[in-house]
Design a protein around this nucleic acid. Sequence first.
DNA 1: TATTAAATAGGAATTATTACGATTATGCAA
DNA 2: TTGCATAATCGTAATAATTCCTATTTAATA
Lengths: 137, 137
Amino acid sequence: MNLEQALQLLKDKGYKYTGKREEMLKICADERRYLSARDIMERMRGNYPSLSFDTVYRNISTFVNLGILEETEFDGEGKFRLSCSTTGHHHHIICTSCGKTISVPHCPMTVMPNVAEDFVVTGHKFEVYGTCKACNE
Amino acid sequence: MNLEQALQLLKDKGYKYTGKREEMLKICADERRYLSARDIMERMRGNYPSLSFDTVYRNISTFVNLGILEETEFDGEGKFRLSCSTTGHHHHIICTSCGKTISVPHCPMTVMPNVAEDFVVTGHKFEVYGTCKACNE
DNA sequence: TATTAAATAGGAATTATTACGATTATGCAA
DNA sequence: TTGCATAATCGTAATAATTCCTATTTAATA
């Protein structure tokens, strides 16, 4: 997904256009890696010095619900990135230092032995963590 | 791992025996599923009404470092369980309602394409979430 | 039994996130 | 273009999980 698609989707769904929403999405589109809510707030402070937590968290939540952002959680906080263009279901190798990702189309669920007949499976998480080349230097 | 092994390991490593540590481990050994720090505290309040956060969190941290407890994180909080007897590396299917688990010896890393030559891989997480039979009723 | 270092209590501090009433701004229709 | 209804935002308080800190207590052992 790119910025234009994200803004169009918001419009189609009847959400109002605001400068803050555009800037949030712009930041995510420019960086294309996992950012925390605080990361996003910090990058917006220049243009919107009086930005509220509420605005950022509520908009993030909206974007996640619409599929504009992908969400995960590690190091004790939520992380968000613009949904990958990778078609369909995928996983990530994630740099825990800068949030940069590599997409992995391979999903372990396809080869999971069906040991869980007693479980109603609602989801799964497969992530590989490490540090990227740039962060290693 | 069982209660006796855990207590022995603590002793071998030079940690002091305390009733609180034994009870924490007893709770984990009896339940054998993922519990939050708060879950553990609540179960101890009867015997130790003046139990401190610090005690629980510090002991959990000690136990995790010694490999007595396995740690994960979902629903915004840390979860802990007595290390499985399953030999070696494994993953879990986890009931997000009660913390009950099923061990899965299969690890997706063994079949991961090596797309990460630019990454120094430090870890990974593979968990399947759902609700168990008992919680579904 | 006395000593010493580890463990704990009690509560304050931190951090991430959510909640909420008051205010402001967007989209739309007259 | 203006006014209206409602969504979005602000400012801040509330929550919730976790960590930190100091005085006190306790387990191990000499």
